[in-house]
């Protein structure tokens, strides 16, 4: 066991996979020599050489496109978009090739690759660094999308992603890159993709969240506990495929659902979670499912971002309202 931050856990997972599987290659902008702008890949080039961990040109379309070719040829690329906001030049590759290679080739080839990208606000960065666009990827058939909220899950999910036969979008909540620490096993282990984690059992309301919002939500739950509200907290961990069963079972038990996401409201992940409550647990609902979200606006500049990201107080307010409905 070692104490790891999210950054260290991801680095550790890459290290394990690079060491174990010579087909794994890691590349992206500043990933090699610098070790990434957030130091996620630090030390890996030194350890595994420039042919396996290297810097790419500043061209996301090329980064993703070459990964498609590598994957078809049998390599296992784990590529980095420096920020999720830079991924869009590569988006065409993701939607047109990455997501559908298995289908297009009638199963002959797969795009077995991982696209890592830091996402989300709260670090006083520029606006196109701060968005939470997981719904874009979750909406594309053929892609899996995961978001860890703990160092343990970051490591286990990344190992699962690298060993997945299908492409995985691995989104990293950069706000908590170093803000949380955890004792994590040094051994190789996996956290199953598509499996949500019931972090805390409760009886009054199911609260579903993921990524950096876990921390704020846990603060809100502490407030709820003082008010005598028993919250069942679920860390979604996988955006797609959604763990419908775990969510439905919990909502059936509590009769209430509040989802917490940083992403904009409309067509966002929160709406999909409400749909599960409606489709799978309609006859158990005691209150209308509620979503706490960001706003349908461009993410604000540093001075305004605390207005955008849901606060513990706002989350608690909605939890209380739902329980008292």
């Amino acid at each position: 066991m070692s104490v790891m931050t999210l950054v260290k856990a991801i680095n550790n997972a890459l290290d394990i996979e690079l060491n174990e599987n010579e087909k794994v290659v890691v590349y992206g902008e500043d990933v090699g020599y610098e070790g990434g702008v957030f130091r996620v890949t630090q030390g890996l080039q030194e350890k595994y050489g420039k042919h396996r961990v290297f810097d790419s040109p500043l061209a996301e379309s090329g980064i993703v496109g070459t990964a498609v070719g590598m994957a078809v040829a049998g390599l296992k690329p784990v590529i980095e978009m420096q920020f999720s906001g830079f991924a869009y030049p590569g988006f065409n590759q993701m939607i047109s090739h990455v997501s559908r290679m298995r289908n297009r080739s009638r199963g002959k080839y797969t795009s077995s690759l991982v696209i890592r990208m830091p996402y989300g606000g709260g670090i006083k960065a520029l606006e196109h660094h701060s968005e939470s666009m997981e719904a874009l990827y979750g909406h594309i058939p053929g892609l899996k999308v995961v978001i860890p909220s703990t160092p343990h899950d970051a490591k286990g999910l990344l190992i699962s992603a690298i060993e997945s036969e299908d492409p995985v979008i691995y989104m990293e909540p950069k706000r908590i890159y170093r803000a949380v620490k955890q004792e994590v096993s040094d051994e190789k282990f996996k956290v199953k993709i598509g499996s949500a984690n019931v972090v805390q059992q409760g009886t009054d309301v199911t609260v579903v969240t993921y990524g950096a919002m876990m921390r704020d939500t846990q603060k809100a739950i502490a407030l709820a506990k003082k008010a005598g509200i028993s919250v069942e907290l679920i860390d979604l961990r996988t955006i797609y495929p959604l763990d419908r069963q775990t969510i439905a079972n919990s909502v059936k038990k509590t009769g209430r659902l509040v989802s917490v996401t940083e992403a904009p409201k409309t067509f966002g992940p929160g709406g999909e979670l409400m749909a599960i409550a409606n489709e799978e647990a309609f006859l158990h609902l005691e209150a209308p499912p509620k979503r706490v979200t960001g706003f349908d606006t461009i993410f604000p500049l540093p001075q305004g971002e605390h207005h955008y990201i849901p606060t513990p107080e706002k989350i608690y307010y909605e939890i209380e309202k739902t329980v008292k409905f």
Binding site: V37, F38, I123, L126, R178, A179, K181, F189
Partner: peptide, 28 residues
């Protein structure tokens, strides 16, 4: 404190004593 381009990356919160999460054995 990046050697270069620190302003681009923003400010990353660093875990203090409150940042410790209970460890998990899932999958281990």
């Amino acid at each position: 404190e990046e050697e270069e381009g620190a302003g681009v990356v923003g400010t990353i919160e660093v875990a203090g004593e409150g940042g410790y999460l209970p460890s998990s054995q899932e999958g281990v």
